[in-house]
Structures are given as C-alpha cells and as structure tokens.
Design a protein around this nucleic acid. Structure first.
Length: 110
DNA sequence: AGTTTGACTGGAG
DNA sequence: CCTCCAGCCAAAC
C-alpha cells in the first residue's frame, strides 16, 4: 500500500506551484513558516524539497515574501545570505547558532 | 533511460 | 551543536 501520493502529473505540478506561491503570499510580516508545512497544506506532504525548488526557480516568487520560508530548524536557505538581513529587518530574532527562533516566529497557516 | 542534484526532513553519532 | 546518511522526488544532466 502506497503511503505517499502517486507521481505528480504536469497539471498537479502546476497546481502545487500555484498553491505554494499563494501560501507564501499569506505569511504575515515578522513571521516564518517551513517548507514541510507548506507542502503539507498544499496536499503533498513528502514534497518539501519541491517547495524549495519552486521558490528558487519561479520568477514570480520574487514578488512574494519568500524570505519568510525557512527549514524546520529555523535555518535560512543555503547560498542566500540576504535572507537573514531581510528577516532581521522585520524584527525576527535569531538564536546564537544562527537559526530563527521558531518558538517565537513560526506561523501555522490558517 | 540511467544518474545526479538539491532553498528538505528525520534520525544517528 | 555539528556532520553524515537514508529517504524523498521532480528536474536537470
């Protein structure tokens, strides 16, 4: 018995991308959420990696607060130093280890 | 058509 | 807290 969804059809890939972008657009100022949370809400729990790919390679993501998406441990995206600055400008607090303080800023989509 | 690559996650050491 | 590894899966080679 499959405990995960079938391979995505091209239509599902498109719908997933649109859902991801829509969810990211709803993240409140000064708060963050995770790739896994977004994947779950979009209906594809095992596709957290694809959330990251979507935000990185979808041009229209530039207009969204994609800097408010971090991994489950509050870690910022590899190779994107500016993300931390953008978050700090919103008052997001980072712990000594360089991770976002998720207990304060994690946002659970409504 | 087979292999490698990640803006991930969970678990081990 | 850190690094390393297995599982993950669409995309790019």
């Amino acid at each position: 018995m499959k405990d995960y969804p079938d391979k995505m059809t091209p239509e599902q890939v498109r719908a997933f991308r649109d859902d991801v972008l829509n969810i990211v657009g709803q993240i409140p100022y000064g708060r963050v959420t995770t790739y896994g949370t977004i994947a779950l809400l979009a209906g594809w729990p095992s596709h957290s990696r694809m959330v990251g790919r979507t935000l990185r390679y979808t041009p229209s993501a530039e207009h969204l607060p994609c800097h408010r998406v971090v991994n489950k441990e509050g870690r910022t995206a590899p190779g994107w130093g500016g993300q931390r600055l953008l978050l700090e400008e919103e008052g997001v607090h980072f712990k000594p280890n360089g991770h976002v303080d998720m207990s304060r800023h994690f946002w659970e989509p409504l």
